[in-house]
Design a protein around this nucleic acid. Structure first.
Lengths: 218, 218
DNA sequence: ACCATTTTATACCGATCGGTATATTATTGC
DNA sequence: GCAATAATATACCGATCGGTATAAAATGGT
């Protein structure tokens, strides 16, 4: 589904890299390009902490060019969150799809988070970063994060449910409780890992979740 | 230890409220007053999202007056975090001290977080708010949050440990693992509660922690 | 290859940012 | 109560903020 565009020289500047679809118009591709470059910066420095100039520098475009494709900084932030959330969601589904049993799907989810937290240029979970900033300031982002939380929890609950139906897990394994608990532990654990600068506590948290799953296996 | 100062009229403006100690100099009291007013704003809007003007308006002082007491906005943010973290810590110790058994101390901790999350003008846990913003931008705040995390976890672990020694909990109850896990769940749970606008999931998370404690009681 | 349309760069806007010099006012030690 | 000191308000600084008008340049349909 993806294709690579030849980098274009405009006014002597090299400014585009990878596009997701060749049938996009120029404007759509540039919009996507801007979001792609802005998203990690916003995830790192926050919405309030990121200036248009940061985005201009990262894209190597100009302010007029950025505002030719977006109404406002706010719109860029919204699309940046959507982009990051969609990517995380896709990566999780991908990681889980490779596992065969439902237990292994849950374990794959844990491994994904463990891998992502130590990755360079990732700057932590976008749900946590955007969520904590938005909860008292930006109701639109807040609602988007809220939906993403519920979606992730539902994903976990669904796996547990199909594990029960497949006879893999005991019937006493409560999908809703576990999904809520596991998600809170993962987000809390990733937050701690980033602040501590290591995965020690996150590892303990994920091991504890794995233990709980094993206890519910039959 | 606390005393109430008569509100002072200066240039016709009423600008001071409650001080913690009467032997403070005027400057010390004003510093404290500024921190007291700024802290909830910074906790709500973030360090980058809060302007000096926000603090000027909240204190009803002037910019020159604020900068007469602080070197920079950064210094205010640091003291605001210290103030909030210290207050949370003191409230937790207070809540726990009223309980007799170690189990009840842990339950009291949970109740504290449950109460705080629905409180007006609280704007969520300062550790989470400052921590997520600081982790990629402000190493000093990052370290402060880091220390506060460890302190809280140690507090939990200590209660579990003395519960084991008192014969209240089984020896299989691991203090370190539980404290890490419980803290991640609480922070994650509070974060979710604030975004969802209700305590439903936090309640489930805390109930799950209580269940685990009960399972380790003998 | 041309021309209408889209997209870009330049230059600029008023507002606000964090921060400061200074004069005025309040406090404090005596 | 007075002088020395501390704390405050006013006015202002350059830089940067988010955003825009406009003209030049690139794109795309024919």
């Amino acid at each position: 589904m993806c294709c690579i565009d030849t980098p274009k020289k405009i006014f002597g500047k090299l400014y585009q890299s990878v596009y997701f679809c060749g049938v996009m118009t120029k404007a759509e591709r540039t919009r996507h390009f801007i979001v792609e470059k802005a998203a990690p910066i916003i995830n790192k420095k926050g919405m309030a902490g990121t200036s248009i100039n940061d985005i201009v520098e990262a894209t190597r475009l100009t302010k007029g060019s950025v505002y030719g494709n977006f109404e406002s900084k706010d719109e860029i932030c919204l699309e940046a969150f959507d982009y990051l959330a969609k990517r995380v969601g896709a990566d999780i589904v991908m990681a889980m799809s490779r596992a065969n049993s439902n237990k292994d799907k849950l374990f794959a989810l844990f491994e994904y988070y463990l891998a992502v937290v130590s990755q360079e240029n990732t700057y932590g979970c976008p749900l946590l970063n955007f969520g904590t900033e938005a909860d008292d300031t930006n109701p639109i982002v807040k609602q988007k994060v809220n939906k993403a939380i519920l979606a992730t929890e539902n994903l976990i609950a669904k796996v547990v449910r199909s594990g029960i139906e497949a006879g893999e897990f005991k019937r006493s394994f409560d999908p809703e409780t576990f999904s809520i608990k596991a998600f809170a532990m993962i987000e809390g654990g990733m937050w701690i890992a980033r602040l501590q600068g290591n995965n020690k506590q996150l590892q303990i948290i994920l091991d504890s979740l794995k233990q709980e799953i094993d206890d519910y296996c039959q």
